[in-house]
């Protein structure tokens, strides 16, 4: 392909992304309040799944603490707003920094050992957080939930929609830029073969640490925004059920692909709203679907689509 053609193609791609984003941005004006809420939750999960994909999909490290880091973001921001009267926006920034800080600490602790240690430690971290939230009832209000102020003076779903849209775009941009930078080459090298990567000069521990810290910080931001949107922070945000949903969204959408988590987040959230009509079966249903997908189509919906297009192409050519 000549360089001109490839620029043309990438321009067309950018144009399509821009047009899609613009169309999506006007969507809430045509929807009722309930559907606006669904879209906002979709965007929250997009942020969560895309940032989890950064660590799991691009460096091959499974963190089970992603929901816990969202919880850190939410509780830090919420508690600062309630106890110290801090502006919620400053709180969101503080929550993000706190999640990054704890991510860095956990990462420093276990990332020099193999990948399994990260999974074990993050699972333990998430459990510790739960115990602390339940025990420090005075501060966190335990399972009752902590009431926190909203991000805007007058409550409107439309304004939250745009806040979450910006959040999702920021998250996706950071992921995209990182993955397509020199560091991104290191991410993928580490995922493919740690030993070969380090023989080529890749500092494997630092590479993982960077991915994990950024990923945790983005989860913290998503959690903080979500807490202020719901105006009630409960231990459900940092729960293993949430962790499982984020994991399923990414796996079903397509682990390690850029659009996969976005597709997964929208599909599963919208689907769960429908399934909820006949009871709380959605976790079980998603679990079974995720199990089948992870087993038979490990690259998710995006992988299935690519394989289908790959098969179709030779016939049309």
């Amino acid at each position: 392909m000549s360089q001109g053609a490839s620029i043309l193609k990438s321009n067309r791609k950018n144009f399509l992304y821009g047009a899609g984003l613009a169309a999506f941005a006007v969507l809430p004006w045509m929807l009722g309040v309930y559907n606006q809420h669904v879209l906002i939750v979709c965007l929250f999960y997009t942020m969560m799944a895309a940032s989890w994909n950064l660590i799991a999909g691009y460096t091959g490290q499974i963190s089970f603490g992603h929901a816990a880091f969202a919880g850190i973001g939410a509780y830090v921001s919420g508690i600062l707003a309630v106890k110290a009267g801090l502006n919620p926006w400053v709180g969101v920034a503080a929550g993000t920094v706190a999640a990054a800080f704890f991510g860095l600490l956990v990462g420093l602790l276990c990332l020099r050992m193999g990948g399994i240690y990260l999974s074990l430690t993050t699972l333990g971290f998430s459990e510790i957080l739960h115990i602390i939230i339940n025990n420090e009832y005075e501060i966190t209000r335990g399972t009752m939930g902590l009431q926190v102020p909203g991000l805007t003076t007058s409550y409107s779903k439309i304004s939250y929609f745009y806040i979450f849209l910006v959040g999702a775009v920021i998250t996706l941009t950071i992921v995209y830029k990182l993955v397509h930078s020199n560091v991104g080459l290191n991410f993928r090298a580490v995922q493919n073969d740690e030993r070969a990567a380090s023989a080529l000069g890749v500092d494997v521990v630092r590479t993982r640490l960077l991915a994990f810290t950024v990923s945790s910080a983005l989860a913290g931001m998503a959690g903080a925004l979500f807490g202020h949107y719901m105006m009630l922070i409960t231990p459900h945000i940092p729960s293993l059920d949430q962790q499982f949903l984020v994991l399923s969204m990414t796996v079903i959408g397509g682990l390690g692909s850029f659009v996969g988590p976005v597709i997964g987040a929208f599909c599963l959230e919208i689907l769960s709203e429908y399934i909820r009509a006949w009871g709380e079966y959605h976790v079980l249903v998603f679990g079974l679907v995720a199990l089948v997908v992870a087993r038979f189509a490990p690259k998710g919906l995006v992988g299935i689509y690519k394989a289908w297009r790959g098969k179709k192409r030779p016939e049309t050519a």
Partner: peptide, 18 residues
């Protein structure tokens, strides 16, 4: 290792809900 971690984790949630 990646997928065995993912699969057993999903399995644990599926079993809990079952």
């Amino acid at each position: 290792d990646l997928y065995s971690l993912i699969l057993t984790f999903i399995l644990s949630i599926v079993l809990q809900n079952a």
